[in-house]
Write a protein that binds this DNA or RNA. Structure first.
Lengths: 277, 277
DNA sequence: TATAATAATGACCAACCAGTCATATGTCAA
DNA sequence: TTGACATATGACTGGTTGGTCATTATTATA
């Protein structure tokens, strides 16, 4: 296996158990069965590993949730599906989620801090899209308040799922929260979180990447991948980016194709936003 | 000033900024203007300092909240008052609250872990008392679900208050949450957190102290205190504990007296429970 | 097979840590 | 003034850390 990949996957387990500062490079290399020096051939420092981890795995969760919101056809079960996807994804990627929760309150590194703020912003944008899809302009001044509540629900119950080793009925939880959310949306009238307050807490604007940046990212991914449907899809999307010609349905299909590859989630997410799918 | 007290107060600031593991004994002693050796005259180890901190300051918050619930006369504004007290108290003791939030997900020490579980349990008990006072048996199967939601609200918004340095209208926040809570209590029907689920997550039962333990604790506090109304009150309560004679109103008054002393909050809380006030 | 290039090793380094202890300073009473 | 006791000091120990680098092993090329 790719050594970089090996280190990332093994260290993820350790970090989830003991937090970043609780795991030494020595422990990681022992666990991987490699030497300490070999580690530094793959990563310049411990921080770089951590940032790489967050980058890679974080996007898988964001993409899962965002995809479920953007691709739901009926509004009937949207709330339920949203919560279900969110909890399902946090369980599937429980290691990285544990890390995100653990390090959230004192990220030991500037880079890491920025990644986490960026992550938070993406999730928030998805929730905003969800709320707008469901309630349009009905909510008005309660909109951002509701968004923050939903985010709070997800955080609170994710923590419950991850830190108590009890088998839990996610479906029930999602129904319960969907009901609660719907209640709050329809009846609450005193907003605490306003648009202004939410802006202030932003900290970092997740800049939309330019067409050129996207093209470069695609180029890079293409060179990394083996020949496969995903590679072909990426190449077609790369062409489409530079010279638009395909119909929307085709583009959407291509983006769906690359979503299947776990390390193309970020690209998939960015393209979906770029092509406004 | 008492050296032990000095160390506790100064180190609290540092810990709140950087977390327990981010602060060395050397940094603490430098910040206090004492030598490293002097630290170990007051505390056997770093852990002991941390446990002492949690013990002392944690109870101040628990007592504040518990007191507001147990002493409210009308149910009209109880929810609002409860939230207001909770947020007011977390702001007043922002340093210790930051520590509690930061260390919650990976307490670096068994003792600390137990303290935190104990703390969580006390808060939960207070919320249960709140819910029962407000809704009695009406809620039935939604009771524990509501309790968990309330706890979630407090955590979510405490984090918001403490980690964004924005001036915030706690009163508005409390009204907003009181409305939300009331909505959930009256209309939600799908419980996720059941009594069983809440039991499982307990981990540690906060054992009610026996009469003898309480008496010892009182004795100790009495010897620590200077002559004052508080000391007198403690002595009277100590007598009352061994040979009941006073009327409830008098006992209640005495307990109120000792609440005024910041380091008698725990005693006050325990006595209030013992005498079922 | 010989040579060059790349991958991997682990002893080593400086920095930091919690905790110790011989020594020094201050403070009483006799 | 003396001596006994409590208080305070900071150099020191043993251990861990992230990170380096001269050396060795492996692979590719010719």
């Amino acid at each position: 296996m790719n050594k970089k990949q090996l280190i990332m996957e093994k260290s993820l387990e350790l970090f989830a158990q003991k937090g970043f500062e609780g795991v030494s490079i020595q422990q990681i290399t022992d666990y991987c069965g490699i030497s300490k020096g070999a580690f530094y051939l793959s990563f310049k420092s411990k921080s770089e590993l951590i940032v790489a981890l967050i980058d890679d795995f974080m996007m898988q969760i964001v993409d899962d949730i965002d995809h479920s919101v953007k691709n739901s056809t009926s509004n009937e079960n949207l709330l339920y599906e949203f919560y279900f996807t969110a909890f399902h994804s946090t369980e599937k990627h429980s290691d990285i989620t544990k890390i995100l929760i653990k390090e959230e309150t004192h990220p030991f590194n500037k880079d890491l801090l920025h990644k986490m703020i960026y992550f938070e912003e993406l999730i928030k944008n998805t929730i905003i899209a969800l709320v707008e899809k469901l309630y349009g302009d009905e909510l008005k001044h309660m909109k951002y308040d509701l968004v923050y509540c939903i985010r709070g629900f997800i955080k609170t119950y994710s923590q419950f799922l991850l830190f108590h080793q009890i088998p839990v009925d996610i479906s029930l939880l999602s129904r319960s929260l969907a009901e609660k959310t719907s209640l709050l949306a329809r009846h609450s009238s005193i907003p605490f979180i306003t648009k202004d307050l939410m802006e202030v807490t932003k900290g970092l604007i997740p800049e939309e990447p330019t067409k050129e940046q996207l093209a470069n990212l695609l180029e890079q991914k293409i060179s990394e991948l083996e020949n496969s449907v995903q590679k072909e899809s990426l190449e077609l999307l790369s062409q489409e980016l530079l010279e638009p010609s395909l119909q929307r349905a085709l583009i959407k299909g291509l983006i769906e194709n690359i979503r299947l590859h776990p390390h193309c989630k970020e690209i998939s997410y960015l393209l979906r936003n770029y092509f406004k799918m």
